[in-house]
């Protein structure tokens, strides 16, 4: 981080290359909107650059970035809630779901499985989506994930258990098709 503060471009590039895609991924999971997610990830890095001169050595960069991105995504969701969820986003999700469910032929393809899993995840409440993404897809410890979400470990576990239960119900209903295609 000291190298970032000194303006070392290689250090900055390394940080961006390592964390950009996962950050955008989390933000997409939370907001359901790619361009908004990209804005959030960019803003998180810009804040990191600004913070670099006063960086506390004990702070973990990835946790800090995720926390900022998480908070920015929460703000974006609240903003959207105030303006009502845009119709186009709702249509996009329902179209994906319908096409994935109706088109049994394409269920064997990887792309369709991914889409179905994504659709199932997108239907979870935002906090459950975030908890599952941080633990399962970002391999974070429960303490780290709870820290990012600013909740207790018990609350995190509750979100994880409810989220996974919903996903199990949705996805394992078509378990034979899905697992047959993945194996």
């Amino acid at each position: 981080m000291a190298r970032v503060a000194q303006g070392d471009e290689n250090a900055c590039r390394l940080l961006v290359q390592r964390h950009l895609n996962p950050l955008v991924g989390l933000a997409i999971r939370m907001t359901g909107n790619k361009s908004e997610a990209e804005d959030i990830a960019q803003e998180a890095f810009v804040r990191l650059w600004k913070q670099s001169h006063d960086w506390q050595a004990k702070a973990k960069i990835s946790t800090w970035l995720y926390r900022v991105a998480h908070n920015l995504a929460i703000d974006a969701i609240r903003r959207k809630d105030r303006q009502k969820l845009s119709v186009s986003d709702q249509v996009e999700i329902s179209e994906n779901t319908t096409s994935a469910q109706n088109n049994q032929d394409h269920m064997l393809h990887q792309q369709d499985i991914t889409r179905q899993v994504e659709t199932a995840i997108s239907r979870l409440p935002e906090r459950q989506r975030t908890a599952i993404t941080l633990i399962h897809h970002r391999d974070m410890s429960n303490k780290e994930a709870a820290n990012i979400m600013d909740i207790s470990v018990d609350a995190l576990e509750s979100l994880l258990a409810r989220g996974r239960k919903s996903l199990k119900k949705t996805l394992l209903e078509s378990r034979a098709d899905l697992l047959g295609a993945t194996s």
């Binding site: 970032v4 303006g7 900055c12 996962p22 955008v24 991924g25 997409i28 990830a41 001169h53 897809h137």
Partner: peptide, 21 residues
């Protein structure tokens, strides 16, 4: 099956343009 890591390489240059240096 869903890694939630979209390719966002097109953002790298604009982010690096805002580094402290």
């Amino acid at each position: 099956q869903s890694s939630a890591e979209p390719d966002s390489a097109h953002l790298v240059s604009s982010i690096l343009a805002q580094t402290p240096a």
